[in-house]
Computed example of a mutant assay.
Amino acid sequence: MTTTTNRRTPKRTPRTPRATPSPAPVVEEREPRGARRKRETRARLLDAALRLMAEKGMEGVAINEITEAADVGFGSFYNHFESKEAIYSTLVDNVFEEFADRLDRIAAGIADPAEVVAVSVRHTILRARQDPVWGRFLIREGFSASTLSRGLGHRLLRDLGNGIEAKRFAVADPLIGFLAVGGTVLSAIAAELNYVVPGAAATGLLAELGFNGEHLPERTAAMLLQTLGLKRAEAEKVATRPLPVAEEPLAQD
């Protein structure tokens, strides 16, 4: 007879789970004080120049006026800009080029050239309403050589050309079409800032004349689309479609 020996299986001591190492804390690199001060000084100079040049134009503003308005030493100006023309050029890029890039992002998914123009017109007037200094600078410089060669004017010429090529617009003279659209937008911005926005110098004048200043961006866009050849009903329909907004570009490392 075979004897079977009962062997006990030794109990295993449960292992203590290893602690997951905590991720290393993210240490935000602080901007060096000197770099921060330089950036802030540059921003103050640009802000002061924009306010002054919106009121008096580049030729009517002296560098010492800019530095005084920015509360910056006169000599510090040349640490950031070579000349008055250089700071003006930077402002043009900020006002015309960067906003034009934003409009391109907003209209990127729109196939109808008429809606592209309507969206651009509405956003431009709304931008001026939100920032009157920006709007007044645009009014003053809207037909400058910088506008035609780049920025908003260049994009408008392109968008009108696309509409004409697609036979969406019936424009016999593209230059006059451009002047009509650009001039109307600038006039609408001037009306918005002078008569419509709260605190404007002549808020009651439109009512005295029997006019209504409500929905000015949409009304301007509709009238311009009619000028470009659309029927009134279609122009008003296109001009009152939901207004798209831009997705901001990712920050570059």
Rank of each mutant, 00 (worst) to 15 (best):
residue 1 M to N: 10
residue 3 T to V: 14
residue 4 T to Y: 12
residue 6 N to V: 15
residue 6 N to M: 11
residue 8 R to K: 13
residue 10 P to W: 02
residue 11 K to Y: 07
residue 14 P to G: 09
residue 15 R to E: 12
residue 16 T to G: 00
residue 22 S to G: 06
residue 22 S to F: 14
residue 23 P to S: 10
residue 28 E to G: 00
residue 28 E to P: 00
residue 30 R to V: 13
residue 31 E to K: 08
residue 34 G to C: 09
residue 37 R to I: 14
residue 38 K to R: 15
residue 42 R to F: 08
residue 44 R to F: 03
residue 44 R to N: 08
residue 44 R to V: 03
residue 47 D to F: 07
residue 49 A to Y: 02
residue 55 E to P: 10
residue 56 K to N: 15
residue 56 K to Q: 15
residue 59 E to H: 13
residue 61 V to M: 11
residue 62 A to T: 12
residue 65 E to M: 10
residue 65 E to Q: 15
residue 67 T to E: 03
residue 69 A to W: 03
residue 71 D to S: 15
residue 72 V to D: 02
residue 74 F to P: 09
residue 79 N to P: 00
residue 80 H to I: 09
residue 82 E to M: 07
residue 83 S to H: 00
residue 83 S to D: 12
residue 85 E to Q: 04
residue 91 L to E: 08
residue 91 L to V: 07
residue 93 D to M: 04
residue 95 V to A: 10
residue 96 F to H: 10
residue 99 F to W: 05
residue 99 F to P: 00
residue 99 F to V: 04
residue 102 R to S: 15
residue 102 R to D: 14
residue 105 R to Q: 02
residue 106 I to Y: 06
residue 112 D to L: 08
residue 116 V to W: 00
residue 117 V to F: 04
residue 120 S to W: 11
residue 122 R to W: 03
residue 125 I to K: 04
residue 125 I to D: 02
residue 126 L to T: 03
residue 126 L to I: 03
residue 126 L to Y: 02
residue 130 Q to I: 00
residue 130 Q to C: 04
residue 130 Q to H: 09
residue 135 G to L: 06
residue 136 R to N: 11
residue 137 F to K: 06
residue 137 F to N: 04
residue 141 E to W: 11
residue 144 S to M: 11
residue 144 S to T: 10
residue 144 S to N: 14
residue 146 S to D: 15
residue 146 S to L: 14
residue 149 S to P: 05
residue 155 R to C: 09
residue 158 R to E: 10
residue 158 R to A: 11
residue 160 L to C: 02
residue 163 G to W: 00
residue 169 F to Q: 06
residue 169 F to M: 06
residue 172 A to I: 06
residue 179 L to D: 11
residue 186 L to R: 06
residue 187 S to P: 00
residue 192 E to M: 14
residue 192 E to H: 04
residue 202 A to Y: 14
residue 208 E to Q: 12
residue 208 E to P: 08
residue 215 H to C: 01
residue 215 H to T: 09
residue 217 P to M: 11
residue 218 E to K: 06
residue 218 E to F: 01
residue 228 L to R: 00
residue 232 R to V: 05
residue 234 E to R: 15
residue 235 A to F: 07
residue 235 A to M: 05
residue 236 E to N: 08
residue 240 T to A: 10
residue 240 T to N: 12
residue 246 A to I: 05
residue 248 E to H: 14
residue 251 A to K: 10
residue 251 A to L: 04
